[in-house]
Design a protein around this nucleic acid. Structure first.
Length: 742
DNA sequence: ATTTGGGTTGTTTTT
DNA sequence: CAACCCAAAT
């Protein structure tokens, strides 16, 4: 392994760094993964470090898997299990070992967002949360934010009146989690950190167990993850962190750029290495990305460079409608494929999952193979969760939430009343709810048939539990499906979805089988943990020869020869919902930056002049970020300006039954250049108040609102504004006397 | 207890 | 324009 030949100078210096903390500031496409991989291999091969004493943390399981393969390739296949995974994956392993100290049994289950909200729904009802405005979702995210900062219910702020509500809900939620032998995503980080801080024995077991910590995407770590790194590290602090503040896009879920900006303070004596040579993108793509991100103020100066040629210009395209955007892209992709590109080389990136619908339509029509990464997650689908609920109850009979799910799928005619009695019986006898099923015959006031159904279920679970140790999960699942008539019940539901639900069930069972073969481990707990922590990208099979559609967030860390960034509009990118606080616009800009830097050779920026949103069709304006790209990098002469008709087909044929409304609107906004400029809006006094989508405005009657879009021109120009209590309204700009507010 | 219907609601990104 | 939640009917 000749590192000097495999790496550039900066990479080589980072990889061969000696003892002590190191921060690698690695720009997009600068060989970050390469550096991490060779660092690992270098430690093992050249420095004699035991591979088992290195912990590598990546952002996704997929990245972990790929890194593991490359490392094995570099150090020879003899290495055993390598400790490479995500923060949450590591946390789960940690917590299984130390479960008792966290008040859990090692067979605990991990609740996902949906489970958490179900739990909170009951909690809200029972403890009587005063303000009706508290939805389970709102409470969940507040509790999650507190946990991300390592705060318990007692330690949470208690200043404002709403703080009391949150504290009470948090405390009760925690109690219920424990009662069900369950934890949530945040607990997987929080408990390890807490135990490392407070428990001498835990420290003895885990501190220094890893002589080297390799952490990827450090800019997106939250408070708890940062503390976990701190808690695991010991002198001489061999923490090898890689990150890029320009790619921090998870501030909204608690990521602290501060962790990377203050890395040196956390780990005194930190050496910093910078990787600025980009190996991925063409000169023009890189120049555009640099120009955009340089507008951000909260960053350290850095300019990526490349030895690749200029490459093609960035193409701008504006279609008349969102459906038209998809069709235009599909055609363009067909064109690229004719030119020798493969479908798998192309990615469509968007800000919101909802955009995939319209894009998909274009691809379906054109017959171009595509795959959607993310969106409705497989393991979050109802039928999948229903079947998994049986397995979860099997390993953890205290999981009341999953038991309720299992009882209801297929429906057994058992409702709240009976469940309450069952819970009461379980509590009285001091047994887990699932085990109380067998005693259902003793329930007072329950009809014989109902009790029978409960006992039958209890009996099924009982028999399966006995086979758990000797039979693979897939066989157990098949037995459940067969005995409960799971598939028949789905079929009986009918509807267009039934067939796909049944398919999903079958896919789930093959997935279990595949897991057992791949990991050589039939443990149901392991399987359930894995599926709980699977991310969208983990489930994505690249190289499958299809165009990939995904959110900009999911695209982090990936690269494609051709990228289409779609919906480059005000109201979408940047997204108004994310622009409430300071620095939020900068995060949206970084998201755009991440999108641009995914591309190796070609970038297409597309938008729709009108889009279906909020139940109506609204006109859109180009994203402000477009103006930040130097004009000479953009191809506007050939495409957008002169050939809009040809490029943006109109009428029934092109608009596909969009009707006269589509046609009528298609002409104007598609005329390229003008459509990329924002239009002035006149207020009541005839003054030009240039409103932009996403801006906040004040109306004399409706109060403050958010500009969502405009339609019409001149005197008939209307503005769509979302007001608080007054809802979404279309107003004539000339009469509305809207005022911009700070 | 479940189903159906109405009305409401809300629409960002995710481990 | 969904999807979704809740309430009344069967």
């Amino acid at each position: 392994m000749d590192l000097a030949a495999l790496l550039n100078e900066a990479q080589h210096r980072a990889v061969t760094h000696g003892e002590g903390p190191l921060l690698v500031v690695a720009g997009a496409g600068s060989g970050k993964t390469r550096v991490l991989t060779y660092r690992f291999a270098h430690l093992v091969r050249d420095r004699g470090v035991d591979a088992r004493s290195i912990l590598a943390v990546t952002f996704t399981n997929k990245a972990a898997r790929e890194m593991g393969e490359r490392i094995r390739g570099a150090i020879g296949g003899t290495a055993g299990t390598l400790a490479i995974g995500t923060f949450h994956g590591f946390g789960a392993r940690f917590l299984r070992r130390e479960a008792a100290l966290a008040g859990l049994d090692p067979a605990f289950v991990i609740y996902d967002t949906d489970d958490q909200e179900r739990l909170l729904r009951d909690t809200i009802k029972e403890i009587g949360i005063p303000h009706a405005s508290w939805t389970p979702g709102a409470l969940r995210s507040r509790i999650s934010a507190l946990k991300g900062q390592l705060l318990t219910a007692d330690e949470a702020p208690a200043e404002k009146p709403q703080d009391q509500v949150i504290r009470r809900a948090y405390a009760e939620y925690e109690r219920r989690l424990r009662e069900r032998n369950a934890c949530d995503f945040d607990d997987l980080l929080l408990w390890p950190v807490r135990l490392l801080r407070d428990d001498e024995n835990v420290r003895e077991r885990w501190c220094g167990r890893y002589a080297h910590l390799l952490i990827d995407e450090y800019q997106d770590t939250n408070g708890a993850q940062h503390e976990l790194v701190r808690g695991l590290a010991t002198p001489p602090w061999n923490v090898f962190a890689v990150g890029d503040e320009d790619q921090s896009i998870y501030r909204w879920r608690g990521a602290r750029i501060g962790n990377i900006l203050e890395f040196e303070e956390t780990f005194p004596g930190t050496a910093i290495h910078r990787l600025e040579q980009n190996y991925r993108s063409t000169g023009r793509i890189l120049a555009a990305a640099n120009a955009v991100v340089q507008r951000n103020r909260s960053r350290r100066p850095k300019t990526l460079w490349t030895e690749r040629g200029d490459g093609e210009r960035i193409v701008l395209a504006c279609a008349p409608t969102d459906l038209g955007e998809g069709r235009w892209i599909a055609r363009e992709v067909q064109e690229l494929i004719r030119g020798g590109m493969r479908p798998g080389d192309v990615a469509l990136l968007y800000r919101t999952n909802a955009q995939s619908r319209a894009l998909e339509e274009g691809f379906r029509r054109a017959g171009v193979p595509y795959v959607i990464v993310g969106g409705l997650r497989f393991y979050e689908r109802r039928e999948v969760k229903d079947l998994l609920a049986y397995l979860r109850v099997l390993v953890n009979p205290r999981d009341d939430l999953s038991l309720v799910r299992a009882i209801g799928a297929p429906p057994r005619g058992i409702g709240e009343k009976t469940l309450e009695r069952l819970r009461g019986l379980a509590a009285e006898r001091g047994v887990p709810v699932a085990l109380a099923l067998l005693l259902a015959g003793e329930l007072a006031g329950v009809r014989a048939a109902t009790a029978r159904a409960l006992v039958d279920l209890g009996d099924l679970l009982d028999r399966l539990r006995a086979r758990l140790a000797v039979e693979p999960a897939a066989a157990i699942a098949r037995q459940i499906i067969e005995e409960t008539g799971f598939v028949e019940a789905l079929r009986a539901e009918g509807g267009p979805e039934a067939a796909s639900r049944i398919e999903n069930v079958q896919e789930l069972v093959s997935g279990m089988q595949e897991f057992a073969e791949r990991t050589n481990d039939a443990s149901l707990t392991e399987y359930l943990t894995e599926v709980s922590l699977l991310s969208d990208v983990d489930a994505w099979d690249d190289g499958i020869g299809r165009v990939s559609l995904m959110t900009l967030h999911n695209a982090k860390g990936l690269e494609f020869p051709v990228c289409f960034i779609t919906g480059v509009e005000e109201g979408l990118l940047p997204h108004p919902m994310s622009m409430e606080g300071d620095g939020d616009l900068e995060e949206e800009r970084r998201l755009f930056y991440v999108g641009l830097t995914r591309a190796k050779d070609r970038v297409f920026l597309t938008r729709a002049a009108t889009r279906l949103r909020f139940g109506g069709r609204i006109d859109t304006l180009p994203s402000r970020f477009l103006r930040e790209i130097p004009a000479e990098l953009i191809d506007d002469a050939g495409r957008s300006a002169t050939s809009s008709v040809e490029w943006f087909p109109r009428g029934p044929a092109g608009a596909g039954g969009g009707g006269p409304r589509d046609e009528e609107r298609a002409g104007a906004p598609a005329r390229a250049d003008a459509a990329w400029e924002s239009e002035p809006i006149l207020d009541a006094n005839g003054r030009e108040a240039e409103l932009r989508i996403g801006e906040r405005v004040r109306h004399p009657v409706f109060g403050d609102g958010l500009v969502l879009g405009t339609s019409g021109h001149g005197e008939t120009l209307k503005v769509t504004v979302e007001f608080g209590w007054a809802g979404v309204r279309k107003l004539f700009a000339a009469f509305a006397s809207l005022q911009r507010i700070g």
